[in-house]
Design a protein around this nucleic acid. Sequence first.
RNA 1: GCUCGUUUAGCUCAGUUGGUUAGAGCAAUUGAUUUACAUUCAAUAGGCCGUAGGUUCGAGUCCUACAAUGAGCACCA
Length: 876
Amino acid sequence: MEISKTYESGKAEEKWYAHWMEKGYFKSVPDDREPYTVVIPPPNVTGVLHMGHMLNNTIQDVLVRRARMLGKNACWVPGTDHASIATEAKVVQKLRQEGIKKSDLTRDEFLKHAFEWKDKHGGIILEQLKKLGASCDWDRTNFTMDPEYSESVIDVFIDLFKKGKVYRGVRMVNWDPEALTALSDEEVIHKEVNSKLFYVRYKIAGSEDQWLTIATTRPETILGDTAICINPNDERFKNLHGKQAIVPIANRTIPIILDDYVDMEFGTGCLKVTPAHDTNDYELGKKHGIETIDIFHDNGTLNAHGMHYDGMDRFEVRKAIEKELYDKGYLVKTEDHINKIGFSERTNAVIEPKLSLQWFVDMKELSQPALDNVMNGNIRFHPEKFKNTYRHWMENIKDWCISRQLWWGHRIPAWYFGSGADEFVVSKTLEEAVKLATEKSGRAISADELRQDEDVLDTWFSSWLWPISVFNGLTDPGNKEITYYYPTNDLVTAPEIMFFWVARMIIAGYEYMDELPFKNVYYTGIVRDKLGRKMSKSLGNSPDPLDLITQYGADGVRMGILISSPAGNDLPFDSSQCEQGRNFTNKIWNAYRLVSSWEAKDIEQPKSSVVAIDWFESKFNKALLEINDLFDKFRISEALMAIYKLVWDDFCSWYLEMIKPGYEQPIDHKTLESTKNFFEQILKLMHPYMPFVSEELWHLIRERKEGEDIIVAAWPTVSVINEELLSQFEIAEEVITNIRNVRKQNNIASKVKMELLVKKNGELNTGFDAVIVKMGNLSLLEYRSEKVGNANSFLVRSNEYFIPFGEAVDLEAEQNKLQEELDYTKGFLVSVQKKLQNEKFMAGAPDQVVAMERKKEADALEKIAILEEKIGALKV
RNA sequence: GCUCGUUUAGCUCAGUUGGUUAGAGCAAUUGAUUUACAUUCAAUAGGCCGUAGGUUCGAGUCCUACAAUGAGCACCA
């Protein structure tokens, strides 16, 4: 059968993914094996696959596939989260295009549209993961708004309410005027922007022409001013103590208050106080009992307090009021100013601090075990440096605003029976609410009188239960699955969501399972383009992952992503890395073509093959030991590099060349059999990274019975490592490299056979001679007791090698080469001798180190003697 | 502003408790090729280990300061 010259990824990928699915290899059910559990960081239902997902999920798949081969019961749970704000925005936008306004729909009608949208688009990303080869147990696919999952979210809300950890209160929240909802602090991104500082003068009440000047970045909030604040120690303004000022335009008289919060250095030293629209002003207002005037509608336009600006957008008003202030002589000057402004993570709208009644989680006590167990190493972070960031956040944790003024999500199970702040109950069902409300109010309350809270919960308030609720650990506590799979093993995620998600999962884990949710957290970096910019849809600098897969094959892309992706560091991505990956799949494919072309006959096994097999066995085992260790340390990309070198350099470039029979010559049975065994072993090591090509070749290299697939083959175990043999090979390798150099320097074609004569000065094992003859294409390898004249020569570990000159030879070049080596060795000797002559070194260094230096000295001296002799000989 | 990282070859990174004159992959350069693979092979070159001090017999590694850079947190209108 003619085998294609290159590996054809597309066909193999389709075939083997279907095969794995059909055989149910991704499926996991509890049994008596050790479980290995990973829960996917659930992507948004609105999302499409991007490079960040590719990186993240490739790593998870590598871990899961290796665990499966290690004989563990591997379970990778996939799923999506409902992404309240993003999804609701998408659905609203889609409806708008169809001419439907959200405000014209009832809640139920809207949710019907939203679920339709979710069913149609919500699974796209999971389908795309299949193309990558992700070995998730798809039967376990979860969604944060699945009925049972939702139940657990509501239960947790009620439970925390009962424990007094969830409360309702008026607070200054981050208001997103576009999404019309409150946000948690974590959802606000502060960015530096160029703005203006407006200097505005306020008349002192009761004076004819006395003024004070404030500086503000937000002149539109002047209409909401209810005080002016100055520092009591500010000598400049002693005359203002006890006075009042008149707000421009509004003509309202407001008090001048004293507080050392005011920085005398900044601006003018006079601060206007707008308690409704600034967090610090709010605190000041509370402290001094100042009136609060809210001048904004929820959508960021001004309300009736905005007077003639009623209905106009806040940024329009800023421009208009600047003009009005100027025209009326209030505006003293404006200055350019850089400050930081909060933006909504989801809608990018400028956040408006706003007073409102919201639900909060009291985090202080809840978070304590989550902090302790990361710091003491019960939960391990990779890389460890993220522990610092984590600790910093956890030690300064604030209460979590969990209500969102949206419809898409888990509706808050609070029921109101009056307008008083305390006239509500929290319960799972309406019936229960009726009962509780009746008890609480002391009067009979009917179902009709109860209004359920309109708001839904923050999406993270559901995803923090992910490792528990995907196994129904809360709705069906102690069930077989949660007992078996929880705690999960490894979580792979981005550092960006350490607080949003990781910290909160740990909190929920300890609160509800009394145990950690996962043992290891592996933080991936950000995927960046060549210019170092984060890859993003808005920049358009991200390649389409599916195009990459078509172009380079899933295996090639997987390798391209992982080859330069150390944990926690950013991944500077370039598609040339995928090219390297594709080349690697092709390399192993062609190695197979070579092996498959050999015909085995009953012939004697060459000596070179015997030694090659012994050597590779040790080499393989040594590499395996290292690779296992790298995996244990989560050094995923270094493990890949070690596998890459083992396969390409050691197996293909050295081993196969050593045992390769002559052109169209047969091979002996023993060598072929060993080679096929080695081939199987390296395919196994490759499998977690390159599942498709390894499965394809696994089936080509030998006939397989039903169920003998590499995906479930046993990961190799470490056996013999003959260090002595490995170091002998290193000598042989050096000899062969030297022979190649002689050829190159003298322009001797590699097919021309040469002679090699050796003068043995020290210990030399001849075990690899047959290999040297073969790899060096020698006609002769002989030992001599005397130097050989008229020859190219080189030195390996104090033994001298001679290749007799065939014809013309560059004597000068030969001499230069020797001189260079001599200079280096002399320099080396000096540095060693310096140490040995240093009394302090001799006194301070351990014996072992001194002995090593002595040996170095002796070796260098011997080498120098030989080199000098050789140079002398050449000159004659 | 505070906290924590990072800084080693053109690029991306290793470099263990301080102990050979610092390594890898990619890129570069030179050469090879009717024999598994030009998606190949062989070889070569490339480093004041961010800067300045200090500790030590000995520092890429430990300490101090500074610089550059990144992340997190907090923000002054």
